[in-house]
């Protein structure tokens, strides 16, 4: 057993890194669904926008400053895109129509990105200060992936504190629980919901940017990301921060250690995990608790 862990440390660590970045992307999808009851199928496209921010800004060897600037810009673009989407879907109540609307936007955005950046695959370099490797049990392991784990942890803690411990978080939770009452005490809930939507989209764009040195940036990646995010949301439970985190970690490990152990079934593992959750716990592993908690 110990030998097995020895041999697979890199793989497990890698599952964590993948899970961390998937968490950044999926949490927005989950929270928007939980708070606004909107399934945003443009989420993958927003994430791809973040990846292309890296393509546009990084150049051959991005400096530390450029890396953080790109993150800020990706967040701003994502936030704006989320705000616009929130404005578009707010008059639409029907789930299927919302899905159609956001899917249409996703197709338009993907096509525009292809027009601007071309149909070919673009690679995104790792920023200089994270481009080294550390020695992990005698094998080199890239520092950038460790940084991704750190980013995921920071965002998860920050989101938890904001939603559970601040006034802003309380307003968001209250809006979910009883929108009319929140309106009655003088808060414009439309603005609250647009901010949540924007925040979720900003996280997706930053996640896309952080994942870009590993996943690259190309047309079609938006669908792959959206699919993974939907699977995470279903596995973890809709509308819950903890669920998105757990779902992302599960998917991260399934995609790495899972395919490493039972390679023959690599193509099916992700959906086998999804099917197992739907069969035995259709509400997801950690669905949103009753009442307005995340």
């Amino acid at each position: 057993m110990l030998a097995w862990f020895d041999a697979n440390t890199a793989t497990i660590l890698n599952g964590l890194a993948l899970g961390a970045v998937l968490f950044l992307i999926a949490v927005g999808l989950s929270l928007v669904f939980g708070t606004m009851d909107v399934l945003n199928l443009a989420h993958g496209a927003v994430s791809l926008m973040g990846a292309y921010v890296g393509v546009a800004m990084y150049g051959a060897a991005p400096t530390t400053g450029m890396f953080f600037l790109a993150m800020v810009i990706a967040a701003v673009i994502g936030f704006a895109a989320g705000g616009i989407l929130a404005g578009m879907v707010s008059p639409v109540r029907n789930h299927l129509r919302q899905a159609l609307l956001t899917l249409g936007m996703a197709l338009i955005v993907a096509e525009l990105l292809q027009e601007v950046f071309g149909p070919e695959v673009r690679s995104v370099p790792v920023p200089g200060f994270l481009s080294s490797t550390i020695n992990l049990m005698g094998n080199p392991y890239p520092v950038y992936r460790l940084a991704m784990v750190a980013a995921g942890v920071v965002v998860a803690i920050a989101l938890y504190i904001i939603l559970e411990r601040t006034r802003a978080g309380a307003i968001v939770r209250a809006t979910v629980a009883d929108r009319a009452m929140v309106e009655a005490i003088g808060i414009r809930t439309k603005v609250v919901l647009a901010l949540v939507f924007g925040g979720g989209a900003a996280l997706a764009a930053v996640g896309g940017l952080l994942a870009a040195p590993i996943l690259g940036a190309q047309p079609g990646l938006d669908d792959q990301i959206l699919l993974l995010a939907l699977v995470i949301v279903v596995i973890g439970g809709l509308g819950s921060l903890r669920g998105a985190l757990l779902g992302a970690l599960v998917v991260g490990q399934v995609q790495t250690i899972g395919v490493s152990v039972v390679n023959e079934f690599a193509s099916f593992l992700l959906f086998a995990a999804l099917a197992a959750v739907l069969l035995f716990r259709p509400q997801g592993l950690l669905p949103a608790r009753k009442g307005a908690h995340v």
């Binding site: 041999a7 995609q255 790495t256 395919v259 690599a266």
Partner: peptide, 17 residues
């Protein structure tokens, strides 16, 4: 090893093998 077509983006587990 054959890796899932179109859905593989991280080759680290295969590279370890």
């Amino acid at each position: 090893t054959f890796t899932p077509f179109g859905t593989t983006s991280d080759w680290q587990p295969y590279l370890s093998k």
